[in-house]
Structure formats: C-alpha cells, structure tokens
C-alpha cells in the first residue's frame, strides 16, 4: 500500500520513525511535495480560517497527496513526553482534516499518547500496525527498527546537524563559506525547517556569514536543566524545547543573536517568547528579535527585519570591542601557545 505522509507540522522531527515503521511493514511511503504557493493556497482555502498557518499548511499537504497515495497518514499527537502535552490543534487534526478536506481521501489516523509512560505512546503505532494486517511479531520488529532509526536521527540532531542536512543528505551542515557568527533560530519545527514559509532564512543568514543553530540541536538534558529555573513545570513539550533550547544557547554562549520565528496567533509562543526575552534581558543581553510569519509571500517586510537585526548585531558587536555585553571577554589576537 502507498502511504502518504504530509511534509508538514512535526514531519521534520518524526519522519525517520514513521517512514521506517511503515516500510518495515512492507508499505511504500510517499511524501507530499515541498511547501509551495499552490500548497499554501490550497491549505488556506480549505482550512477553517482561524487556525494558525502551520495547520493550514498541513491541510495543503494532505491535498497534495490526494491521488498520489492510497491512504494519507494523519498523526494525532496528544502527548510526546510523560506528563506533558503539545498544542491542542494536533489533537484535533484528524477531525479537522476529515471535515475540511473534500474528495474524501482515506486517512490513516495514528495516535501517540505518552502522557503516562513514554512506552505507552507507541501503543497507537502498534494498534495501527495490526489494523494494517501485520502480526504482533512483525509490528514489534518494525517498531524496534523505527525507534532505532529515530534515536540515531535525534542523536545526529543533537550533534549539530539540521533536519534538512540529514533528510536531504546534504553532506555538510548548511553553513556559510566563512562563519562570522552563530544565530539561534528559535521556533517550532514546522517554521524553522520549512524554507518556503520561513522565507529561506537559513540561506539568508548564511549569505551574511551566519550559521543557524536550532532548538533540536540542544540535548534534552540541557533543556530540562535550563527550564528547572522556573518554579512551575512547563507542560507544553514544544514550549519547553523552544525556551530551554534558547536559554541553553544563551547560557553556553553559543550564539551571537537569537531570532524567534513565530506564526501569527500561536498561543504557546505568546508566553514562551516573552519568558525567553525576559531571561535574556536580565542575564545575557544578547540581541534578540521576533519575526512573525503568516501567509505573506512578499519578502520585503521579512528582509527588512532580518537585515536590520544583523546590522544591529554587528554594530553592537563592534562597540562591545570583543568584550561581549554578557561578560566573558574573547581574545582575538594571536595564539599564545
């Protein structure tokens, strides 16, 4: 059977798990095309109007798969870590697709709920595997291989690769020819790894000599540690990753600037961005800006903000005289040894 996977929402995070699982069960996986104007238009046209842009894009990607696949995978991610949740829109995704996308494509709904225990999260995949006609033994074997592949992928992400460089087998990290500095790109995976919707920000940064690092490059232990400063548990998994990822980048002096990409109307980002900004202003004082993305295709407003931010970073850097405002001095002279 040909199983279509929309290249949207958490695709860049979980594709090794999903793809391996279905392929090990003997199915063929097809991906929707890369986000394009056509996919965006279809998504905006089909989806309820008050949803956020990433959810609209998911609709567009589902429509792109109609006719290309026998069934279309719609993950229902409820909780990806014990005791935490992700945005409720992920929970209602299958219903939104069923009610909005016409042409009644056959959907394959895969639940993932690890609220009690991580292991229990995979029960949804087990159940789906059996529904697809596989034996328990085959399902377990496929799941083991899929999880091994996913673990390998996550450790590559933590070692500094971007999903794009791994998934598209780019041999190098997407780095500029000569690196002037690093910029932390903080945002949900469906924004920071979708070049169409983020206006090619990674390449634009590279053209100015800056390498981007992402929340997925930060190990989970560091994220937990960084978030332990807050009196309450951050129970949105992605909110925690964005905040903890940003804080770790600041704390470890890994970045010269932080750019937060947010989609208009994102409820989680509304307070996560604010918490990160406050921590940065209080303790690190590293240039930070927020760029809001929606369905614009005109790039002028985006480019103005990006260009102004880099100008400011370089302007401030020069004043700091290689003694960054955050305290540590950096020796840039000849090597002493």
């Amino acid at each position: 059977m040909k199983i279509g996977i929309p290249r949207a929402l958490l695709y860049p995070i979980y594709i090794p798990l999903w793809k391996t699982f279905f392929e090990e069960l003997g199915h063929q996986v097809v991906l929707s095309g890369r986000t394009s104007k056509g996919i965006l238009n279809n998504g905006v046209k089909t989806c309820v109007d008050d949803a956020c842009l990433p959810v609209k894009l998911f609709h567009g990607h589902v429509m792109d798969l109609i006719g290309k696949a026998d069934v279309i995978l719609v993950p229902r991610l409820i909780s990806i870590y014990p005791g935490e949740f992700i945005c409720p829109k992920f929970i209602g995704l299958p219903e939104m697709i069923k009610n909005s996308v016409s042409g009644s494509p056959k959907l394959l709904i895969m639940n993932f709920n690890a609220r009690d225990r991580l292991e229990k999260g995979y029960d949804g995949m087990r159940q789906l595997g059996r529904e697809l006609g596989a034996s328990n033994t085959n399902v377990e074997r496929a799941l083991d291989r899929a999880r091994a592949r996913q673990a390998e992928y996550e450790s590559m992400l933590e070692s500094g690769f971007s999903p794009k460089s791994i998934l598209e087998k780019r041999n190098a990290r997407q780095s500029p020819a000569s690196v002037k500095g690093r910029i932390g790109l903080i945002g949900h995976p469906y924004l920071v790894y979708d070049d169409y919707i983020n206006m090619n920000i990674v390449e634009k940064l590279a053209a100015r000599g800056y390498e981007a690092i992402f929340p997925e490059n930060v190990p989970l232990e560091d994220i937990e540690l960084a978030c332990s400063r807050y009196p309450k548990k951050l129970f949105w998994s992605y909110g925690k990753r964005l905040l903890g990822g940003g804080l770790t980048m600041l704390e470890k002096r890994k970045v010269d600037g932080l750019i937060i990409l947010t989609s208009f109307g994102c409820g989680i980002d509304a307070f996560i961005d604010e918490l990160l900004l406050r921590a940065n202003q209080r303790e690190y004082r590293i240039p930070q800006t927020t760029i809001t993305l929606d369905e614009h295709t005109g790039q002028a407003g985006f480019d103005t903000r990006l260009e102004a931010f880099i100008d400011m970073m370089e302007w401030r850097g020069r004043y700091d005289n290689n003694i960054p405002a955050y305290g540590t001095d950096v020796y840039t002279g000849k090597s002493l040894v």
């Binding site: 800006t289 103005t304 401030r316």
Partner: peptide
C-alpha cells in the same frame, strides 16, 4: 505603514522592534 522603536545606547543601535501585523 509601519511603526518602529529603536533604542540607541553608546552610539549604536542596541535594540529595535517593528509592528508585526
């Protein structure tokens, strides 16, 4: 069509913001 705030400190632009939507 846009509004901005620019902070100047020590002779350089040290922070700015522009209206979003």
């Amino acid at each position: 069509q846009d509004s901005k705030i620019i902070l100047l400190r020590n002779g350089v632009v040290s922070d700015f913001a522009m209206n979003t939507v």
